[in-house]
Amino acid sequence: MTTTTIELTPKDFKGKVDPDWCPGCGDFGVLNALQRAASELGMQPHEIVTVSGIGCSSNLPGYINTYGAHTLHGRSLAFATGVKMANHDLNVIATGGDGDGYGIGGNHFTHTARRNVDLTYVVMNNQIYGLTTGQVSPTSRIGQKTKSTPFGSVEYPINPITSAIMNGATYVARAYSGDVKHLTDLIKGGIRHKGFALIDVFSPCVTFNLDNSHNFFKARVRKLEDEGHDTDDWAAACEKAMAWGDEIYVGKFFHMENDKESLTDLEPVLRDGPIAKRQGGLTEEQADRIIQRMM
């Protein structure tokens, strides 16, 4: 429902304040890519709702010129689902970090993927809790030393890519925030996709996670596009997603384009348009029907 044809530049999607992230933070690249994606897709600020939880990366809605909701820690997907279900004309983008999405919000991550809610979820995965000054996260590697694991973590990390595929997500990608062009393309694909799209982004924390730095990723990331990967093949996608060593894959792992409908398509109540635009209570006829059933 575009109401104007003025083409906007990424700059038009700049928020009212500048980010308060640390200089060199990977999240700058993600913000930049989101603004470019919105511009390149010809979107208008009022057509987008950016929903986040809590954490350094969850401050993002303040820095982008769209409708925004800075909700509770871990709850961005539940809130975003509510927004999308109430008004599916809106483009809903959820943003946040690995602790917010895969830790405290893990249950919603599982079920939002299962429902195939038509959302684009961009996770700035820095493998650390940054805003609380450096504790272990659900994606921290085993052995990693953090403030809450000073002798090294003895827990294995979650794999967001395989989790998302297994839970039923229909567009699953990973990117490195240092390659804004590549990330922009993956976000655009996610926004265009009808269904739940996860873009897990390596977004280094330059202050509290020196293990997984920009240099760490620059030396290791390999694009799936260069590997002849088949995005229909979920088993191959999972195998590629598990790789963690000298080669770490980024790109589009899995994309189910037409075989699985989104919740918007499946929910019969939405066939008459967004429920948020339906005001009013019961008609006479509906009231009659209800009372007849009670007699």
Binding site: T81, G82, V83, A86, H111
Partner: peptide
């Protein structure tokens, strides 16, 4: 938790 946050989201969108 999901229930509560989902209704807040839907309410924010106007339902």
């Amino acid at each position: 938790i999901g229930v509560a946050n989902m209704i807040v989201g839907a309410a924010h969108a106007g339902a």
